[in-house]
Design a protein around this nucleic acid. Structure first.
Lengths: 197, 197
DNA sequence: TTATTTGTGCATCGAACGCTACACAATTAG
DNA sequence: CTAATTGTGTAGCGTTCGATGCACAAATAA
């Protein structure tokens, strides 16, 4: 139900998706407004009318990205091992899709920021930190059910697997194939029983 | 033995070290010439006279960085396990030093680059790739000596540990303590015997 | 001395940055 | 219809980007 006013002449969702791809591929500061408007097929003014600012557009792009690849869903799987294994495999696959930018947007899109844009860097850092808490909590829960031994350092094991995830983003950007990353995940999962008992 | 011409009024090595710190901390594109001259305490013209261009200065900074933290040295240790363990511990320690930028310059300093600076990104990608080849070769060597079982996928195991190294850079930037990363390394080393037999 | 060479400070270049003022177009509300 | 509201295109804002031209300073060489 559109109110009064001239209707938008482009598909906002499609334009946002395009912007997300660009930010995902190059990072926040490396994508210019000109890059965005060219790829989205709209004028500068339309971008600002629809999205407010470059930073707000980026925040929306990140929200769109994470809506399609949240870590929460994996935590509901019956065992911690299933949580970690399917989460790792899903990421390894997602990072090497031919139809998408490589690696993880949350890990890669704001690593090099000038002082003006620390807020953007911090946004992604907070999202990474939430994953850390989430996965640590999942392991703590597994300790209560007995799946994971009492003496295990849940935070250390969660950090260990997170480190792999972060690293696989760099590797995906470096051209590692889906099979390469799958082999990394296989190796990581081989270690699981020896880390939780 | 200085030739003719006015002598340089600043310490070139110290200035290069300062530039390295800046690039290491913020990344290539996020550091401006103004940032550099301010931190180095020299004028724009002196920077260009001494270093040529921003890209050449960056390349020198990377060379200085890698001269102090090459992976080669670890490969000479008697066993592959020592190579990987001391290499991991050295990195985990180096990424969390209070007197240095966090994380690894080669991993973090050129992840977000606009199309103009792909050469800089590729420079670091090549250095990462050399490490991959070096560590894979070290494991192949260990297979010949019998330390590592024949059936082991050397490339996969090397990639697995490299992924951890890359990930620890992100974690160091996220504020993980030296103890946090040491725990990640402990976890990774716990897995070693189960990955090579 | 004079010629040559190299470094420095100042002023600034053209280009790109994120962003916006303004006039106008296109819609709904009354 | 008119009024109100919102989107679009052009043209350009002020700033910063990496890099330079030029006059001068400070050294060596002859």
């Amino acid at each position: 139900m559109p109110g009064p006013g001239r209707p938008r002449a482009f598909d906002r969702d499609a334009a946002l998706r395009t912007a997300m791809r660009l930010f995902w591929d190059r990072g926040y500061e490396a994508v210019s407004i000109t890059d965005l408007t060219a790829a989205m097929g709209i004028g500068t003014r339309s971008l600002y009318t629809a999205f407010g600012s470059k930073e707000q557009l980026f925040r929306e792009a990140v929200a769109l990205y994470s809506s399609g690849s949240g870590t929460e869903g994996f935590c509901d799987l019956p065992t911690a091992r299933e949580t970690f294994e399917s989460w790792l495999r899903d990421r390894a696959d997602g990072y090497t899709r031919v139809d998408r930018p490589r690696g993880c947007m949350v890990v890669m899109a704001a690593t090099n920021t000038s002082a003006d844009n620390d807020a953007v860097r911090d946004l992604l850092a907070q999202m990474r930190n939430r994953d850390r808490e989430m996965l640590t909590a999942r392991l703590e829960r597994a300790k209560r059910t007995g799946e994971v031994a009492e003496h295990v350092d849940a935070r250390a094991v969660a950090s260990f697997y997170l480190s792999l995830i972060y690293g696989m983003s760099t590797q995906a950007k470096d051209g590692y194939t889906a099979a390469d990353l799958a082999a990394v995940v296989d190796t990581a999962i081989t270690a699981w029983p020896h880390l939780v008992t």
